[in-house]
C-alpha cells in the first residue's frame, strides 16, 4: 500500500476508498439508531408515532377537500408521509452530521462522505420500521395493493435515498462553514412538503406547466411511485423522468461540493 499526501488533487469521488471503509456506513448508522432511541420509554415506537400523528392531523384538515382519491385519505396521507420522511429525516440528519461528528473528523481520517450517507441510512431504517404499520392500515381499510406495481417500491426507495443524499451532502458541506444552514434546513423542508404530492394527489394541479415545474422536485417521483403500489395508478412517465433527472443533478452537485470542501473540514469545524 503506497499513497501520497499532497495539497490539491483533481476531482475524484474516491469510490475505491469508500469501499475499503464500507463497514463504517453500517457502524455509523447503527450508532445513530441505537443512540436515537436510548433513554426513551417508547423507543422505536417514536418512529411510528410521528407519521401516525401527522396523518391524523392531515386527515382532520383535508379529508373533505380532497375527495377524488381511489383509497381512503388516511392511507393516502400515511403512505406519502413515510416515504417523505426518508427525505426529511435523511436531509436533516445529513446536513447536521458533519457538525455533530466534528470531534471525529478532527482526529481520524476516513472518507468523509460516509458520514452524511449514514445519516440518510438512519432515516431509511425508520422508514422500514413503519412498513408493517402501513400494511396494517391497508388491511384495516381493506385496500388491496396493486401487486403488478410491487417492483416500483425498489426504485421509489432508492430515489428517495438519492434525493436526500444529494442536497444532504451539499448542506452538510455548507453547514460546516456557514452555520446559518442549521436554521435554513427545517424551514426548507417544511416548504418543500407543500410542493410535493404528499398531502394532495399528483393531479391536484391540472395546468401542465405547473405540473412540470412541480416535477422538478426530486421527491415527487419517489412519492408517486411508492404510492402507485397501493393505488395502482399509472404514472406520468415524463413527469417522473423530470423528477429523477433533477434528483441526479442535485446528487452530482451535492457530491461535487462536498468533495471539494471536505479537505478543509478539520480546519473549519
Amino acid at each position: 500500500m503506497e499513497y501520497e499526501i499532497k495539497p490539491s488533487e483533481r476531482f475524484k469521488l474516491g469510490l475505491r476508498e469508500i469501499w475499503q471503509y464500507r463497514e463504517l456506513f453500517y457502524f455509523f448508522a447503527w450508532r445513530d439508531i441505537r443512540v436515537k432511541y436510548k433513554q426513551t420509554v417508547l423507543g422505536f415506537a417514536w418512529a411510528l408515532l410521528q407519521p401516525l400523528a401527522f396523518m391524523l392531523v392531515l386527515t382532520l384538515v383535508f379529508r373533505r377537500n380532497i375527495n377524488d382519491l381511489s383509497i381512503p385519505y388516511p392511507l393516502f396521507a400515511f403512505s406519502g408521509l413515510i416515504i417523505w420522511n426518508v427525505f426529511t429525516g435523511g436531509i436533516t440528519g445529513a446536513a447536521n452530521s458533519m457538525v455533530t461528528n466534528a470531534h471525529i473528523i478532527k482526529k481520524i481520517y476516513f472518507p468523509r462522505l460516509i458520514i452524511p450517507v449514514s445519516s440518510v441510512l438512519v432515516a431509511l431504517f425508520d422508514f422500514l420500521m413503519t412498513l408493517p404499520l402501513l400494511a396494517a392500515l391497508m388491511i384495516w381499510y381493506k385496500v388491496a395493493p396493486e401487486w403488478g406495481n410491487i417492483w416500483m417500491l425498489i426504485p421509489a426507495i432508492l430515489l428517495a435515498v438519492l434525493a436526500a443524499t444529494g442536497p444532504g451532502c451539499f448542506l452538510a458541506a455548507l453547514n460546516v462553514k456557514y452555520r446559518d444552514f442549521r436554521y435554513v434546513i427545517p424551514f426548507l423542508v417544511q416548504l418543500l412538503l407543500f410542493v410535493t404530492p404528499v398531502i394532495y394527489p399528483a393531479n391536484y394541479f391540472s395546468n401542465p406547466l405547473v405540473q412540470k415545474i412541480l416535477a422538478l422536485n426530486p421527491m415527487s417521483a419517489p412519492v408517486n411511485m411508492f404510492r402507485s403500489f397501493i393505488t395502482g395508478e399509472t404514472l406520468n412517465t415524463e413527469l417522473c423522468l423530470i423528477s429523477i433527472a433533477s434528483a441526479v443533478v442535485f446528487m452530482a452537485a451535492g457530491l461535487y461540493v462536498f468533495r471539494k470542501t471536505e479537505k478543509h473540514f478539520a480546519d473549519l469545524a
Binding site: 495539497p7 482526529k107 479537505k263
Partner: peptide, 10 residues
C-alpha cells in the same frame, strides 16, 4: 486530517 499547503508525503 488536514492537508498540506505545499510539499508531498509518500
Amino acid at each position: 486530517i488536514t492537508y498540506p499547503t505545499a510539499g508531498k508525503i509518500t
